[in-house]
């Protein structure tokens, strides 16, 4: 079976190091984008199965990336997990209203994150 592809859209290299290693070890193919525009470009080239999306991204915010993914019918099957330090209820509500499938606030447990990703990809 082909491994699932996950795009990590985050501008913090320290979290990317951990997530990239963790997800590769879990058997996923991992792509990395450092800003919102790069994330959209990567999506055009190689549509992933799931996007781990930070909100505070340079150029285009995570909210805007989420909105653009949901506006494109070709990307309807892509799961979006927002992974962010923005922990206020109103921000979480906005993320889900814009079409995110899950909203995880930093700091998080890596086990819970992996479990959430697995659950999203199995749905």
């Amino acid at each position: 079976m082909m491994s699932k592809t996950i795009l990590i859209a985050d501008d913090e290299p320290n979290i990317v190091i951990s997530l990239e290693y963790l997800l590769q070890r879990e058997g996923y193919r991992v792509l990395v984008a450092r800003d919102g525009q790069e994330a959209l470009d990567t999506l055009q080239r190689t549509p992933p199965d799931l996007v781990l999306l930070d909100i505070m991204l340079p150029r285009l915010s995570g909210y805007e990336v989420c909105q653009k993914i949901r506006e494109n019918p070709d990307w309807a099957g892509i799961r979006i997990v927002m992974l962010t330090a923005k922990g206020r209820d109103v921000e979480m509500s906005k993320g889900l209203a814009l079409g995110a499938d899950a909203y995880i606030t930093k700091p998080f447990s890596t086990k819970d994150l992996v479990a959430q990703i697995r659950a999203q990809l199995e749905e």
């Binding site: 320290n14 979290i15 190091i17 330090a85 930093k106 700091p107 998080f108």
Partner: peptide
Amino acid sequence: LTEGTRASLANIRAAVET
């Protein structure tokens, strides 16, 4: 402070747990 701390703690926690 909260957002910055959350981000740094997430990075530390993810690294330690990995």
